[in-house]
Amino acid sequence: MKKQVALSAIGKDQPGIVAALSKVFFENQCNLEDSSMTRLKGDFAVLLLISLPENRTPEDLRRAVEPVAQKWGLVFSMRELSPEEMELEASGTLPYTLVVYGVDHPGIVYRLARAAADEKINITDLRTHVTTGAQAPLYSLVMEVEVPGARVAEAFGEKLEALKKELKVEVSFKAAEAEEL
């Protein structure tokens, strides 16, 4: 039976982290299925979905990762996925992208995320940046979401118009189109 684990790790950025981690997976015949790794200021963060071979348990992998994480100063956690979770695929939802930017102030993410959650809109990816502007720090945010249906998208669009004025930000909310180039 297929076994999958989700692993997250974070630690001070330095050259060699990805090589050290992927070496462990390679030596244990694990397959790196999905990954997202990025540096935020001085920290490097890793999110991985790994499938294990028949002859390895999640516990084997944990034991193999532990000394590497320790050596590289990474805090990590691991969780095995249930068979249902492995089958999980988004169905019947519409992908949308929300872009918001404006002068930085507390509460932007919260208000947007709250509004999304209230409409049962699922956030699948979120990136934010604060950059030092000439006059004021600029906050920019790009959020990818799954919307339960077209009517919800419309309602959320209206909510965003109100939030745009209240938060004094620019907002664009569009259906994510498949790029055919």
Binding site: V99, L126, H129, V142, E170, E179
Partner: peptide, 15 residues
């Protein structure tokens, strides 16, 4: 219309 208004995915914005 500013270029940020034309971003279509969360991987499209960079510092």
């Amino acid at each position: 219309i500013l270029f940020l208004d034309r971003i279509r995915s969360s991987k499209d914005l960079f510092e």
